[in-house]
């Protein structure tokens, strides 16, 4: 959450106020925004959409994210839902130019197989073309 306050408050003090009494059990971290935070995010390479679904298990997100970090692939958006034991994860990835898309795709599918997950990786444009009714191009 990004907040602006009418008076100067130290980040630690703010965190403590939000956290409340120690018994709340909340973990809160506050820090001051820098100019770097305010700059628009730099896009690293083409954008892809990864979808993975299977039975939920501990560490599944980290299994995928560790592999992606190792390939220097940025996760620019991540969401997941769980319905009973089924887990669905949708991630937006930025694959930097030297990394071959089909290598990442094959690796993710392989990790998926090991973990009992079905994984699909598509270029953002393919995802939009097949899932959005109205497209930008004209006839």
């Amino acid at each position: 959450m990004v907040v602006s306050l009418p008076e100067a408050v130290a980040p630690e003090a703010l965190a403590e106020r939000v956290r409340g009494p120690a018994s709340s059990g909340l973990q809160v971290l506050a820090r001051r925004l820098t100019t770097a935070d305010l700059a628009p995010p730099v896009q690293h390479g083409e954008r892809f959409v990864m979808t993975a679904f299977g039975r939920d298990k501990p560490g599944i997100i980290s299994r995928f994210s560790q592999y992606l970090a190792g390939k220097d692939v940025n996760i620019s958006d991540l969401s997941w839902t769980r319905s009973q034991a089924d887990f669905v994860m949708i991630a937006e990835l930025e694959i930097p130019p030297p990394v071959e898309f089909h290598v990442v795709q094959a690796d993710l599918e392989e990790i998926g197989r090991e973990e009992g997950f079905t994984v699909k990786l598509q270029h953002e444009n393919v995802f939009v073309a097949t899932n959005q009714l109205r497209l930008k191009h004209s006839v």
């Binding site: 898309f101 089909h102 795709q105 990786l121 598509q122 270029h123 393919v126």
Partner: peptide
């Protein structure tokens, strides 16, 4: 034609 199709095909994995 051929190199263009190959490049676009690679980009989308199709």
């Amino acid at each position: 034609l051929v190199e263009t199709c190959d490049r676009v095909g690679r980009k989308y994995g199709i």
